[in-house]
Amino acid sequence: MSRGLTVGQYLPGESVIHRLDPRTKIAIVSVYVLALFIINNPWGYVAAVVFAVVALALSAVPLRYMLDGIKPILVLILLTLTLNVFMTPGTPIWRFGRVVATREGLITGGFLAFRLILLIAVTSLLTLTTSPVALTDGLERLLKPFARLGLPAHELAMMMTIALRFIPTLLEEAEKIMKAQMARGTDFESGNLVRRTKALIPLLVPLFISSFRRADELAMAMEARGYHGGAGRTRFRQLRVGPADYVAGAVTAVFVAGLVYLRFR
């Protein structure tokens, strides 16, 4: 199993956050992400950080995991920051030839980067504390009202469940094939770009073949057990909204109201 890719990696646990209804969590994260974009002053950011820290503490997820989730987008964050610092007109604070860094740019860029970090942190907290099955279950239920407009909610959710379910399998398989080819003398780690890309062929071809085989087998197994799409399907695991969900919803509502007040007072 390869780690490093935290988004989509569930960390089993028994915390309050883990036990919240997935619909509640998805809704809260969506609201939180939207709310991040109405913040326009430092106090708003303080509130947003406090919210994220409390959620993290309640979830008992080690901070390391959340940071792991941020790592892959670090480049994006730095790029955003740099672009803003040099592209925003305003008071110059540093000059190198024709390139000028401005105070305004630093402030805007800093806030934007901060926003991105919070966004990823809270989203990975969602995937870290919610099993993929629960996640898609919740999503399916949330999308259900749109089914009347022709949105194939169940099929989308089923596709997502299957995709998520097979990420670890695929990684495992990739690792196995990689090792087998390394045992035959492939070097995945050195050489120039062309060489390295070529070295991927012995990995990707078997991986594709086994994915198709797996997909075929899965489709057959599902049909053999009478799967015929979403219509008339009942569920074994019923989603239930409990007191904790109401509390979480209320807290979020207060948080958002606070942000709105800070912005428009």
Binding site: K179, A183, G185, T186, P202
Partner: peptide, 25 residues
Amino acid sequence: LIFQYPEHQLFEETVTADVAFGPKN
């Protein structure tokens, strides 16, 4: 090293090319 189910590592267009992969490396 011959792994469990080694046939999953085959990838070339012909058997000859696949067997040649190791010696070529």
